[in-house]
C-alpha cells in the first residue's frame, strides 16, 4: 500500500531524512516513532505530496507521490501535525468545503458528513464555529476531514498531541477501529501511544530507521537486558559468591544495610526460582524477589540518547 525506497530530504544542507526505506501492507496499522526532529513529519509530508523528496521514491496504492500526486492525494486522508483549520468556518461548512475539494457531490457530502460526524463525536458541535471549539474537538474535526472521502490510507501526524487523557483514550480506540477498514500510518514521539495502537513500529532517529518490528519483537530484542532483584538476610560476600555461581548470570551488584543484602543480578533467563532454592538451601530469609524486564521505553530512550542510533538499518 505504501512503498518507500531510499527516500532523502535536505533542507538546505541539513539532512532531515536520510535514505529511508520501508513498506506498509494493506490493512496494517503502523506507528512511526521518534523524538522531535527525527524526520517523521518530513517523511509524512513527502508521502502526502506536500513537498517533494530530494532523492528516492515513494508510492501509495501504486501511484508515485511525485508524478501522480493528484491520484495519491485522493486516496490519502491526512491529519497534519498541528491540525490547521479555518477558525471562522462552522464545522459543517468546513467539512462541506473539504468534501467539494474531494469531488463529492451534494448527496455524497451529506452522507459523508453524517458518517464522519457520528464517528468522531461531532454531532453536537456541527453548527459551531471551529474557532470556538476546544482543542480536543478541533482534533476531531481534523480527523473527520481526513475520513471524509473514505480514503484507503490514513496518515495521521501526532493525532493525540495536546489532548487530555480521556480524549487520548477515545482517539486511540477510534484509530484502532479505523484500522479495520483503512491502512493507517501514524506518528508519535510517545512510545505508549504507538505501543497501544499499532501492529508494527518503525523507530526513526536523525532521519534514519533504527529499528522496526511488532511491539513484541522489539521487546524480545531488548529483554536481554532484564535483571532479577533479590533482597536476603545474609552477609554481602556470601550472597555475591552464591549468586555468581548460578548459571546464566553475567553480573551481580550487591549492597547491604542492617544485615539485609540487596542483589541486582543481570541475566537473560528468569532466575527467581533458582534464587529462591539457593536461599532456602542456605537458610537466608527472603523479603524481596522480583524480575525486571527492560521495557520498550528504556530501549527507546537509549535510541534517542544515541546509544543504538544508526547502528543498523
Amino acid at each position: 500500500m505504501i512503498e518507500v525506497r531510499n527516500l532523502s530530504k535536505f533542507y538546505g544542507s541539513h539532512r532531515a531524512v536520510d535514505s529511508i526505506s520501508f513498506s506498509i501492507a494493506e490493512g496494517e496499522i503502523v506507528g512511526f516513532l521518534g523524538p522531535n526532529g527525527a524526520g517523521k513529519t518530513t517523511t509524512i509530508r513527502i508521502l502526502t505530496c506536500f513537498h517533494p523528496a530530494t532523492a528516492g521514491a515513494a508510492a501509495i496504492n501504486g501511484h508515485d507521490v511525485f508524478t501522480e500526486s493528484i491520484k495519491v492525494r485522493s486516496v490519502v486522508g491526512y491529519l497534519p501535525e498541528n491540525n490547521p483549520l479555518y477558525p471562522e468556518m462552522r464545522v459543517r461548512e468546513y467539512l462541506d468545503f473539504r468534501g467539494k475539494l474531494h469531488g463529492l457531490d451534494r448527496a455524497q457530502r451529506r452522507a459523508a458528513i453524517g458518517r464522519v460526524s457520528e464517528r468522531c463525536w461531532l454531532t453536537d458541535v456541527i453548527r459551531r464555529p471551529i474557532g470556538q471549539l476546544s482543542k480536543g474537538f478541533r482534533q476531531r474535526v481534523g480527523l473527520a476531514d481526513a475520513l471524509l472521502h473514505n480514503p484507503k490510507v490514513l496518515i495521521l501526524d501526532e493525532p493525540t498531541v495536546g489532548l487530555d487523557p480521556t480524549q487520548i483514550r477515545e482517539t486511540r480506540s477510534l484509530i484502532q477501529d479505523l484500522a479495520k477498514e483503512h491502512t493507517v500510518l501514524l506518528s508519535s514521539h510517545i512510545l505508549p501511544e504507538v505501543q497501544a495502537t499499532c501492529q508494527r513500529i518503525i523507530i526513526i532517529n536523525r532521519g534514519r530507521i533504527v529499528a522496526s518490528g511488532s511491539p513484541d519483537e522489539l521487546r524480545e530484542r531488548v529483554s536481554g537486558e532484564s535483571q532479577t532483584i533479590a533482597e536476603v538476610q545474609a552477609p554481602e560476600t556470601d550472597v555475591r559468591a552464591g549468586l555468581e555461581g548460578l548459571q546464566g548470570v553475567t553480573k551481580v551488584k550487591v549492597a547491604s544495610t542492617n544485615g539485609w543484602t540487596r542483589a541486582t543480578v543481570a541475566t537473560k533467563a528468569d532466575l527467581r526460582e533458582t534464587i529462591f532454592r539457593l536461599s532456602a538451601e542456605k537458610g537466608w530469609a527472603v523479603r524481596e524477589l522480583r524480575r525486571e524486564v527492560a521495557s520498550l521505553e528504556d530501549f527507546f530512550v537509549k535510541i534517542v540518547a544515541g546509544a543504538i542510533g544508526g547502528s543498523e538499518k
Partner: peptide, 12 residues
C-alpha cells in the same frame, strides 16, 4: 495559519 498544508494535500 498552516492551512496551506491541508489545501495543497487535497486533490486539487
Amino acid at each position: 495559519t498552516g492551512t496551506i498544508e491541508t489545501l495543497t494535500t487535497a486533490p486539487i
